[in-house]
């Protein structure tokens, strides 16, 4: 038996909007500590990890660890039927092959039930070790989204370089090149507008803008985004979900030309 009641239903809607573009089908894993998801995109270049801790739910009941395979597009379709202020309850019975989303309007005068078929998804879990990143950049999420959008109109690859001065996003395309530098800036009125660069070592990595752009679909979830970079590690783009958890996107860097051959043939 699983019953999760989320007062801020719009949050779940936003989460789905954030990840459905990247991943089609995924297993949601529910345990007594929270509601989580880990999935790779179909090309195995990016990975999304979602965690909604149980404390963030108004009511959280999960008797057994359960893994529910869902088509995220279908789930998003159903969640779209929920109003932004609705309370969403996710319910599933043990051994059932469906999950029910219940939407209650804030005034309690409308209650909708949507039952969705679950699917058997054969996905494997990846172990993501904690790592010390060479550089961690925190910036307004809208700013990051804007940069990615702008750069993707010029080129398809972004080079993110972090130096003492700040973080530089650059791209190169047929029509020319673009460089955007964001300097560290902590003297703002609101802390969420700050750009903070913590750097232990200079880092410069290349990423496909296509993926970055789909990560920025999570922008509504959080006003800030944290980008953690290390040479030879996937970048982590993290959107914190207030008091509940996070959505983290991992993206494998592009490999320099001469190393192309060493690309793992997994």
């Amino acid at each position: 038996m699983l019953e999760l009641r989320l007062v801020q239903g719009s949050l779940l809607k936003k989460v789905l909007e954030a990840i459905k573009e990247l991943v089609n089908d995924a297993n949601f894993d529910c345990s007594s500590t929270g509601f989580s998801l880990q999935a790779m995109d179909s090309s195995h270049v990016a990975l999304v990890a979602l965690l909604l801790r149980s404390e963030g739910f108004e009511h959280y009941r999960c008797d057994r660890n359960i893994s529910m395979g869902m088509n995220l597009n279908n789930m998003a379709k159903m969640l779209k039927c929920a109003g932004n202020d609705d309370i969403i309850t996710i319910k599933a019975d043990d051994g059932s092959d469906t999950v029910t989303f219940m939407f209650e309007s804030p005034t309690q005068d409308k209650i909708s039930d949507f039952e969705m078929k679950l699917m058997d998804i054969d996905s494997e879990h990846l172990g993501i070790p904690e790592a010390e990143y060479h550089a961690i950049v925190r910036m307004p999420s809208s700013e990051f989204a804007r940069i990615c959008k702008d750069l993707s109109s010029i080129g398809d690859t972004v080079v993110i370089s972090v130096t003492k001065e700040g973080v530089k996003f650059s791209t190169k395309g047929d029509i020319g090149t673009a460089n955007i530098v964001c300097r560290q800036n902590t003297t703002v009125d609101k802390p969420e507008e700050a750009t903070v660069v913590e750097m232990n070592e200079p880092v410069s990595l290349q990423f496909a803008l296509r993926y970055m752009n789909s990560f920025t679909k999570a922008t509504p979830l959080s006003s800030t985004v944290t980008i953690s970079l290390s040479n030879e590690l996937p970048v982590v783009v993290e959107y914190k979900i207030a008091e509940m958890g996070y959505v983290r996107f991992y993206l494998a860097p592009k490999i320099e030309e001469d190393e192309e051959e060493t690309k793992p043939q997994v």
């Binding site: 195995h44 990846l126 494998a252 490999i255 192309e260 690309k263 793992p264 043939q265």
Partner: peptide, 27 residues
């Protein structure tokens, strides 16, 4: 590694693109 083989193709589009599986281990 098991599964990787079949999916690798998807990656072929951009030879320079790294694969997340080369960084994260399946558990």
């Amino acid at each position: 590694t098991g599964k990787g083989g079949s999916k690798k193709a998807a990656n072929s589009k951009d030879p320079k693109q790294g694969n997340i599986l080369s960084f994260f281990k399946r558990v």
